[in-house]
Amino acid sequence: MSIRIDPDLREVAALKRIAEWRGRHVLEIGCGEGRLSVRLARLGAIVWGIDPDPARIRAARRRLRRFGRRVRVGVGRAERLAHGAGSFDLVVLSWAL
């Protein structure tokens, strides 16, 4: 299945209007295959993405390799976050609620 989501980047325009992203530590919940993670990284964020689906996380790792340590992903669930208290400047619920 080949679907291009938000090709005209309206989502990015909205995100830029509601928050400052450069240099911010961001947890993206529901990162899937990293579609939004790429966009957040291009805005300058340091992203940690989680998704409950291991196959999607494997695909995200391949897609996000070029960003190095600025974008990391792992299997995880919104209801049981492994991160410590006060770890992030921003948390993004990416079509996850």
């Binding site: 928050a19 049981r80 006060g86 992030f88 921003l90």
Partner: peptide, 16 residues
């Protein structure tokens, strides 16, 4: 959980 891992004054972005 999102509240817990956010820094004080941090932002939750609910996109859906």
């Amino acid at each position: 959980q999102a509240h817990r891992v956010l820094k004080p004054g941090g932002l939750l972005i609910d996109l859906r």
